[in-house]
Every structure is written in C-alpha cells, then in structure tokens.
C-alpha cells in the first residue's frame, strides 16, 4: 500500500508529486478505516442502545470483523492484480483530450 520511497527528496524544497502521493495514501487509509467503522458497526452493534458500553459479544465481534476486513482487502487486491484491472477500464471513459 506504500507509494513512497522512490527517489530521495531535494534537501530544501518540496517534491510536489511525492507530497501528492502521500496525501492520496492518507486519503485511502482514512477511507478504508471509515468503511470498517461503518461496516463493523452495522454487523456488531445492537441498535437498541440499552447501555453505553460495549458488551463482551460486541467486543469480540469487532475484533473478528476488523481482522476479516483486512483479509478481504488482501483477497480483493490479489484478485484485481490477477485480472489486471486498470483504473481506466472501470471508469466512465471518454475523458481523452
């Protein structure tokens, strides 16, 4: 998941491309995190809200849920690399100048 680490930065200035890539990686991680929070909330947390603490079942469920999400993330990534699904092929297309 790391896009960094190619070439070293100039001593003083800012390599715009490098910063952009790091920002995109940050966005990606945040996006994934938010989706895990939301999915695992839907799967694990009872919406009766009889109390404010996580009970034992909910806590165990969250742990498994996060682990499983990472597994699925890995599987999907591998599958997509195998298919060679390029970014362009899945987009609306027609954006060439």
């Amino acid at each position: 998941m790391s896009f960094l680490g190619r070439g070293s930065a100039p001593a003083g200035g800012i390599n715009q491309e490098r910063v952009e890539m790091a920002t995109q990686e940050l966005d990606m991680i945040t996006d994934i995190f938010n989706r895990i929070v939301s999915s695992c909330h839907a799967k694990c947390i009872s919406t009766r809200y009889a109390e404010g603490d996580l009970n034992k079942g909910e806590s165990v469920c969250i742990d498994r849920c996060v682990a499983k999400f990472f597994e699925v993330n890995k599987k999907v990534g591998e599958k997509m690399q195998a298919v060679g699904a390029a970014a362009g092929s899945a987009g609306p297309g027609g954006f060439s100048l």
């Binding site: 995190f33 695992c40 694990c44 404010g52 603490d53 742990d63 996060v66």
Partner: peptide, 21 residues
C-alpha cells in the same frame, strides 16, 4: 447518549485493531 458513548468506544476499538493489522 448511549449511542454516542457506544460509537466512540466502537470507533476506538476498531482504531486499535486497525493499527495492529
């Protein structure tokens, strides 16, 4: 109040597991 409380705890726990993985 419970919903808020629970969500924050949920979110914190997910964060901890997330960081580990």
């Amino acid at each position: 109040l419970n919903c808020t409380d629970k969500f924050l705890k949920h979110s914190e726990r997910v964060g901890a597991r997330f960081a580990e993985h």
